[in-house]
Nucleic acid binder design. Structure first.
Length: 499
RNA sequence: GCCCCCAUCGUCUAGAGGCCCAGGACACCGGCCUUUCAAGCCGGCAACAUGGAUUCGAAUUCCAUUGGGGGCGCCA
């Protein structure tokens, strides 16, 4: 038992067809946590055996995602390892010789059926309401017949000769014993006509050669597991242990896809989610520590991760909870760290008319004001753009806050303008000292006075605390904005009733 | 159509026969705090899919039904 623990070797085997899906990364995370928990190895292997679907740059995107979440790999691209290469496209001979060996052993055969024929066959099966699957036409082909077709130039694949009887069972670490009737499994392709292996062959060969101890993959693979087991047996390999993780679904309960909005981790990063939050959130999709612990850092996750606590039920990716958790992590950042992380988002999203680079000192006076008010780093721009813009653009009506009228608003603005002009210091305390008494003097509520000022100074009715905001903006800017507001009020026509 | 998996609040989940007329979190709804918005604190709403069986006792075991998901490619 203890010996097995030391030999834990798991892999994340993405196919470079685009930017990685959160579900895909969740699978990577569980593999990574499992490896780290057991002191084993986490291997990254690129399954680039589909020439047609390969996407340029996808490998980099995938590795970048892993790096962002700080999931380091012990073997794989860039770092190498004893079992390389870690790109399947560079291991073709391995699969080809395995396939050939299976043919020689009588466990596989050449198939000359054309894609067109297979399509017709499938159409027919659908029409007759039969289960789709290869009809095994070439299975009985004699060696001579096969050779003749080959010489005549027909393209061919290698198919596995699936046993027609009995059943295949195995113990899934999460679901227990699972059994399949062999008769329901068709003669699947091992080697495509372009000489590339299918997933089934390649993953079995590689998992064996790379000494993978546990295969942790999404549940969508559960029904191909008997094929893999048959292959292990035919090749004389000892199979690894299997654990099929619950799927991640979209809000409509179907397999998570682009239709469900942001699905790639790269997008989440760009939207201002923190890697720490994403990691924590993903870890809770299909796994839990106990009945109350939710906030866990990387080390705590590693310490506690266990397949025994992985659920069997598919989970819906709940964006609202992610938002909450991201906000929680943001709030727990110290202000310097928060500011440092915010700057790239401001640089990216603020109007191009604003001079770059943004002044660090000014920005670091602003960030404390919205630190606990954002759910994502990208939220900051919208909340703070009035700090950077010269001319505020807003409707004059906005200046008439609740329980106010234009005359009162003018009064508030005029009075505060005078008062602010005389202030010695323009910091939070003196501002409060000067403005708070105004409410009594004018016999108004704080909401009326401060609300009006808020709009004048920020151009919006929702903003960070007034005195701090004004202090950061500075006297000159505040006075200019109050003047501008006054102008808006005097120029603005009376609002017609009932509009 | 066939095969496989799954089934606790809207969502993520705790629960491995009595501790559960079911606990936590998000969301939602109130309240407090408060210059707006947040944050924070307090409170509330809300679930064991259905039917059988086993048992003194079932959310927990078994069987059906229903529902959901996944798979059935020269894709992974």
């Amino acid at each position: 038992m203890a010996k097995e623990k030391e030999n834990v070797r798991v892999r994340y085997a993405p196919s470079p067809t685009g930017s990685p899906h959160v579900g895909n990364i969740r699978t990577a995370l569980f593999n990574w946590l499992f490896a780290r928990h057991h002191g084993g190895s986490f291997i990254v292997r690129i399954e680039d055996t589909d020439v047609a679907r390969r996407v340029e740059g996808a490998v980099d995107t995938i590795l970048e995602a892993l790096r962002w979440l700080d999931m380091n790999w012990d073997e794989g691209p860039e770092v190498g390892g004893e079992h390389g290469p870690y790109f399947q496209s560079q291991r073709l001979e391995l699969y080809q010789s395995a396939a050939k060996r299976l043919v020689e052993q009588g466990d596989a055969y050449y198939c000359y059926c054309t894609p067109e024929r297979l399509e017709e066959m499938r159409a027919e099966q659908v029409k007759l309401k039969q289960p789709p699957g290869y009809d095994r036409r070439c299975r009985g082909l004699s060696a001579t017949g096969s050779l003749l077709k080959f010489i005549s130039g027909s393209r061919r694949v290698i198919r596995f000769m699936t046993p027609l009887e009995k059943q295949t069972s195995f113990t899934d670490l999460i679901r227990g014993e699972v059994t399949f009737e062999n008769a329901n499994i068709d003669d699947f392709v091992l080697l495509k006509s372009d000489g590339y292996p299918t997933y089934h062959l390649a993953s079995v060969v590689d998992d064996h050669v790379m000494a993978i101890s546990h295969v942790l993959r999404a549940e969508e693979w559960l029904s191909s597991t008997p094929r893999h087991l048959m292959l292990y047996r035919a090749l004389g390999y000892k199979p690894p242990q299997f654990a099929h993780l619950p799927m991640l679904l979209g809000t409509d309960r179907s397999k998570l896809s682009k239709r469900h909005g942001a699905v790639s981790v790269t997008e989440y990063k760009a939207q201002g989610y923190l890697a720490e939050a994403m990691l924590n959130f993903l870890s809770l999709l299909g796994w839990s520590l106990d009945d109350k612990t939710e906030i866990m850092n990387r080390q705590k996750l590693i310490d506690n991760f266990s397949l025994k606590r992985v659920s069997q039920t598919a989970a819906i990716f709940n964006r609202e909870k992610l938002d909450w958790m991201n906000g929680f992590y943001i709030r727990s950042l110290d202000i310097g760290d928060f500011t440092r992380r915010v700057i790239p988002f401001l640089e990216r999203d603020l109007s191009t008319e604003i001079k770059r680079p943004l002044p660090d000192k000014y920005v670091s006076r602003i960030t404390p004001l919205i630190h606990e008010r954002v759910k994502t780093l990208a939220d900051v721009t919208e909340l703070t753009d009035f700090f950077f813009i010269d001319e505020l653009d807003y409707k004059p009506e906005l200046l008439i806050v609740k329980k106010m009228n234009p005359d009162l608003a003018v009064k508030v603005l005029e009075t505060s303008r005078k008062r602010l002009g005389r202030l010695k210091e323009f910091d939070e305390n003196s501002l409060e000292g000067a403005l708070r008494p105004l409410t009594e003097e004018l016999e108004m509520k704080t909401g009326q006075v401060f609300g009006t000022l808020r709009v004048a100074v920020t151009g919006r009715s929702v903003a960070p605390p007034l005195f701090q905001t004004m202090a950061v903006l500075g006297r000159e800017r505040c006075l200019d904005r109050i003047k501008a507001a006054l102008r808006k009020l005097k120029v603005a026509p009376e609002e017609p009733e009932g509009e």
